[in-house]
Design a binder for these strands. Structure first.
Lengths: 328, 328
DNA sequence: CTGTTAGCGCCTTCAA
DNA sequence: TTGAAGGCGCTAACAG
């Protein structure tokens, strides 16, 4: 069933049908009514592909995140969706799974699907997908990263400052053993570590575990930590640069009888919702996640409606949130 | 940049270019190589809309869930994505926000975008969107619901049995005050309540709060409960038919000084990952969430490749999981 | 206000 | 193996 069919049935031309689809004012009300009737009768749905191909807006924006099962991204997406759908757009999410090729593929897909805008949380601060995005003229905005090249819209936490915030706190806690746990190599992590390193007085003796990416991996590393670093004997402070992982670590630590924050104190990063109501509420560096989604949505809408404006750049200040998992 | 452009540059016809795009064997290897080179040089990406319009598969499936910020759906989607992307498909998620009109709109969008398959977690067990789906010939599968009409593929927990499981446990706990908290009107909830009612000996005196849908609303209702039902004096058992909400309730209850499970015991439903590592690990009815996503993915793939087969119907048995929030 | 005519970018017979 | 031509369903001028 196409507009041709319903045009024939209404005894008019395809153009008129197309006009009522796009809600054009120049079509006689009664005719419009009749066409609407017929469309409803057949429960006709216009083909989005054809509409898109023929040049009209699809009223759709795409968002690519790095993983689904990380509450950080979900919260961002949720805040984003709230705004964007109020504005009459629909959003489609997909996940790159921290894989640059997959990311590129998804970006290509969105571009070639002619979405009206794209939000990308990139694996790297400089990549083929970002280059592609720059070359096509679809409005896009990067989140959770500061791009290498200039003139690209982004919104990111000031992770360098966040790392320093954490270091200050570690200096005050002043524990004999200090451990840093980081995840996938990513710009956000690099900055956090850099800020932390510069400000933390015991950096030289700090032990660093890398590539702990997921909640599950956090859960697993905890027992390794215990035996390898003798956690049950030495008072320790843990900086886990991602709440999701931190919560996994804490879970296991509790299960194997390590007290928190007494024996081991844990600081996270992100301040996902969960952090406030998990087993041991998490002391963490907050980056106002919901705001990121909301700001991203507003800026993207602005860019869609007003493509010539300068690309917005947001660097959001982090904030220390002290809860139970690490106290002074 | 279109296939016409690159055809011209290669000195061949569009047809040949199209053939290399679809990896057709009948194109001279060296020619193919040359075309590939040129495509790569211009980082050419074929237009998905046009491809779809012209009839080829998009290798995309859509999944519509009811809300983003509910871990249940995210876990399902994550399991689903894992399988589907291994099979070379990409997935796009969107959220109906418990709104039937929005759901219909999203379904129409997916249909008219010619996706290869659709997963829908419907707001209602009988709706315009389901009807639409039946009428078009795109493979689809419903999750988290048992459709009213027959011949529709679905995968759902046996919520009736789940409700009875909860009731058994409540009978054993035998508390003087019993409260039931449910969310949006939804078939899953109806069945859970029905099973619970039939088996619970104190159903008649059970107090029922409805329309508590989100984590936040659970958090808010908790203080109401305390004052209105005198929670701090009377030993109470709470059946919250959704873990997400239960966790919100527990959070607030703890904050206002109610001990769990001593004073108030709480039973949830779903067994989202979070339930095992939240403040007070949740006693709940488990429905093997990840499996739902995985089975859904496998069945959908099967339906895509083999459309004539009978529609699969999965009713997953629930399981009681006793943790700390409610003990006997 | 309404119909006609071209495309949008790609795939797919059908001939060559 | 390759090319030419038509069409997928819709929109967008351009005439009337």
């Amino acid at each position: 069933m196409t507009i041709a069919d319903i045009a024939k049935e209404a005894g008019v031309s395809k153009a008129s049908v197309s006009r009522v689809l796009s809600n054009s004012p120049k079509v006689r009300p009664e005719l419009k009514e009749k066409i609407l009737q017929i469309m409803k009768y057949h429960s006709f749905v216009p083909n989005k592909l054809a509409q898109g191909l023929a040049g009209s807006s699809r009223n759709t924006v795409g968002i690519i995140i790095e993983e689904l099962s990380n509450f950080f991204f979900i919260e961002v997406a949720d805040g984003f969706d709230r705004i964007i759908s109020q504005a009459g757009y629909s959003m489609q999410i997909s996940s790159s799974k921290w894989n640059e090729e997959k990311e590129l593929e998804l970006v290509q897909q969105l571009i070639s699907s002619r979405v009206d805008g794209i939000i990308l949380s990139p694996v790297s601060d400089e990549s083929e997908s970002i280059r592609l995005l720059k070359d096509c003229d679809i409005p896009f905005l990067l989140i959770n990263i500061i791009p290498k090249t200039k003139g690209i819209a982004y919104i990111s936490c000031d992770n360098y400052a966040g790392g320093k915030l954490a270091a200050d706190y570690f200096n005050k806690m002043n524990r004999p053993l200090n451990i840093l746990i980081t995840g996938f190599p990513h710009q956000t992590i690099d900055y956090r570590v850099q800020g932390f390193r510069e400000k933390f007085s015991k950096w030289d003796s700090t032990i660093h575990y890398k590539n702990i990416n997921t909640f599950e991996q956090g859960y697993e590393i905890a027992s390794v930590l215990k035996t390898r670093n003798n956690l049950s004997e030495i008072k320790t402070a843990l900086f886990v640069t991602n709440d999701n992982v931190a919560i996994g670590v804490i879970k296991k630590l509790l299960e194997i009888g390590i007290s928190i924050p007494g024996q081991v104190s844990v600081m996270g990063y992100d301040d996902i919702k969960l952090s406030s109501f998990c087993r041991i509420p998490l002391t963490t560096i907050s980056q106002n996640i919901k705001d990121i989604g909301i700001i991203a949505a507003m800026e993207l809408l602005e860019m869609i409606h007003n493509p010539e404006k300068a690309k917005p750049e947001h660097k959001i200040a982090p904030r220390l949130v002290v809860r139970e998992s690490a106290v002074i």
